[in-house]
């Protein structure tokens, strides 16, 4: 009888080995898809901090990915190296997130959802209309892939490892943050804001911090997105993208460390296996999300946990007999 921990450890080990051996057996298009999965998972991790841990709905994560991507593309065009540009993308998104969250979090309800919805549309309009900066609908092409310590990540396989490596770094940072006093403060915001306030937690400041850090992580994801796709256009960052990131976090399991990875896999990798559904994939996906919300709003990870708990309860009941 395998314990849940052993099952999970084996699963993680197998995933790591399969991903490490990826370039050996994946087609170039699939290699690109897995790299995109890693980048999208980072964006979803950022949103998971805002939504899953601090309990605020942001509909602007896609816009932050866009800001990050354009920042990196433009700074690299201006002659800056990848890493300083990458850092700038995160810092800029942190600042924008802070400025955006400040007015929205003054009021209760789900006003952050509405403000971020408006923000995403505004960012899209700016990207499309400010041609002098973003080249409008013609987009920016020819974005260079990074070089680190004299090692160029130019080929698809090398950049694949680069994306997965950065994703692992962010996963580690998330794991650390959730266990830090900040992470605990974020969670109490979601669970019981009134009690948090009475315990002396400055709820507004911590919610703002969670949103700004989540936005910064979105900016970093964008910074990686730019050299991956090597072509940026405003349509990639419309409201639909932000909403699909929101769905990913929820589908995977908001408030679980690995939730965004699972959610991004469902949204990015699964369509490749379900080619036979053709144009109906999105339709089926939307229907599946609605069913999942009705039966298990904790997402797929929540679903598997519930299933394990049920099994354990059954085994325990069987043991007593």
């Amino acid at each position: 009888m395998a314990s849940a921990g052993l099952v999970r450890g084996t699963l993680a080990a197998v995933t790591v080995v399969v991903l490490a051996a990826g370039p050996e057996f994946l087609r170039p298009s699939q290699l690109y898809l897995v790299s995109l999965w890693a980048v999208t998972a980072i964006a979803a991790m950022g949103l998971n901090l805002t939504l899953g841990y601090a309990g605020q709905i942001s509909m602007a994560q896609g816009a932050f990915v866009g800001i990050g991507a354009y920042t990196v593309a433009l700074l690299m065009q201006a002659g800056l190296g990848f890493f300083p540009a990458f850092l700038a993308a995160g810092v800029l998104c942190f600042a924008v997130g802070w400025l955006l969250g400040y007015p929205a979090l003054r009021v209760q309800h789900h006003y952050l959802a509405f403000v971020t919805l408006a923000f995403t549309t505004l960012v899209y309009l700016l990207l499309r209309n400010e041609q002098w900066l973003t080249n409008g609908v013609y987009g920016i092409s020819g974005i260079q892939r990074p070089t680190a310590l004299g090692f160029a990540f130019g080929t698809a396989a090398r950049f694949y490892y680069f994306c997965l490596g950065i994703m692992a770094l962010f996963l580690g940072a998330m794991w650390w943050m959730i266990r830090s006093p900040w992470g605990r403060a974020f969670m109490v915001l979601r669970e019981n804001p009134v009690r948090a306030l009475s315990l002396g937690v400055d709820t507004r400041r911590y919610t703002l911090l969670a949103f700004a850090i989540g936005s910064a992580v979105g900016g970093f994801a964008g910074g990686l997105f730019a050299p991956l796709v090597q072509f940026l256009e405003p349509n990639s960052f419309s409201l639909g993208y932000s909403l699909s990131l929101l769905l990913m976090v929820i589908v995977g399991g908001a408030g679980y460390l690995f939730g965004p990875l699972v959610g991004a896999a469902v949204a990015i990798l699964l369509p490749d296996f379900l080619r036979f559904t053709e144009g109906y994939y999105l339709l089926l996906y939307a229907a599946a999300v609605m069913v999942l919300m009705a039966f298990c709003p904790q997402g797929l990870i929540g679903l598997s946990e519930r299933w394990q708990a049920n099994r354990r309860a059954r085994l325990a009941a069987g043991g007593e007999r």
Partner: peptide, 30 residues
């Protein structure tokens, strides 16, 4: 849509209506 979701709180319902919007759009398109 709404009734099965109410006991879960506001967030799942918001997500469900977002999914419903995609569903309706895709259904009309397809």
């Amino acid at each position: 849509v709404v009734e099965p979701m109410l006991r879960h709180g506001v967030l799942p319902l918001v997500i469900s209506t977002v999914a419903l919007a995609i569903l309706m759009k895709e259904a009309v398109k397809d």
